[in-house]
């Protein structure tokens, strides 16, 4: 637990250092906010939903990198995520994430690693009529499998495949800039994969819908909500859909900070898992 907090603290300190530093670390060619933030699975996106946007501010011919920390604290669990993300040319995004779910009430923890790849196949989030369309994969490997196996999970590895569409309206309702993202994911992952893949109740891929909607109050502040459908593969406890409402802050192209209220319903039979979420993203 201390390690998690300290990692998050390091991200925070690093972020504030960059905030106070006048040098532009990320002088890349995309517009502020269009790199979005980093989701809990390491992909560029919202908090719980990967978006069709590519991470960082790298435009055509440019490289971009992000370092991220995400943290969620609900009644009986704490999720900590650290991730790295490399993007080339507003086209290809490669990510690596480590997730750790602390089981405060049950004891112990669940961990996994996620290797992600996302490719923008068409469109642009801001320009043109077409939404930005991307396809992605997330290959997940449990590093702790004893508990998932004990509750009926079939595999300790799994691969999610998703398609995402993202669109921004520069002058939407209230003459504010709005952004929407819809993601369809084929998955067997139980609780993101932290409880393994497939199970006694269902062992097939299923399609899940995930959506985010946000409004930029001005250039720097984004408010919005997300919803993520989840499969229900394990007989021991029902798995529920997740949702959150968030506030994102984009002070410059180097840093993005998100705070959110998450409602994760019941996890592993423990009801009413709601609480706070925060993430820090540093872009290079």
């Amino acid at each position: 637990m201390i390690k998690l907090y300290s990692n998050f603290l390091v991200s925070g300190v690093l972020a504030s250092t960059i905030l106070l530093c006048p040098i532009a670390y990320a002088d890349n060619g995309k517009l502020l906010g269009t790199g979005a933030v980093t989701s809990i699975e390491g992909a560029g996106g919202g908090g719980i939903v990967p978006w069709a946007t590519t991470a960082s501010y790298a435009e055509k011919g440019e490289w971009g990198f992000t370092v991220n920390g995400n943290f969620a604290d609900v009644d009986d669990f704490q999720l900590g995520v650290q991730s790295l993300n490399a993007t080339y040319g507003n086209r290809i995004e490669v990510s690596y994430a480590q997730q750790r779910l602390g089981l405060n009430t049950i004891g112990g923890d669940l961990k996994q690693e996620i290797y992600g790849l996302k490719v923008r196949v068409a469109g642009d989030v801001i320009y043109g009529d077409l939404p930005q369309l991307s396809v992605g994969v997330q290959h997940k490997r449990n590093t702790t499998f004893a508990l998932p196996e004990a509750v009926g999970a079939t595999d300790d590895t799994g691969t999610d495949v998703y398609v995402s569409a993202a669109k921004a309206w520069l002058a939407g309702p209230f003459a504010r800039t709005w952004v929407a993202n819809l993601t369809l994911r084929a998955t067997k992952a139980n609780q993101l994969g932290l409880l393994g893949f497939g199970g006694d109740k269902n062992d097939d891929y299923e399609a899940m819908a995930e959506a985010s909607l946000g409004m930029f109050i001005n250039r720097h502040w984004l408010v919005g909500a997300e919803y993520r459908q989840k499969p229900d593969n394990l007989g021991f406890a029902q798995e529920y859909d997740w949702r959150d409402v968030f506030v994102g802050w984009f002070p410059n192209k180097s840093v993005a900070v998100v705070v959110a209220y998450v409602d994760l319903k019941s996890i592993a039979g423990l009801p009413d898992q709601s609480g706070a979420y925060a993430s820090v993203q540093i872009s290079f």
Partner: peptide, 29 residues
């Protein structure tokens, strides 16, 4: 003109609009 250069011009316009005190809603339109 590259996509990055187009965006740079957009950023210059946003900076100009901020300097002129133009409301966010007007900027967006």
């Amino acid at each position: 003109i590259t996509r990055a250069e187009f965006n740079a011009i957009v950023e210059d316009l946003i900076t100009a609009m901020e300097k002129e005190g133009i409301a966010v809603s007007t900027q967006n339109r």
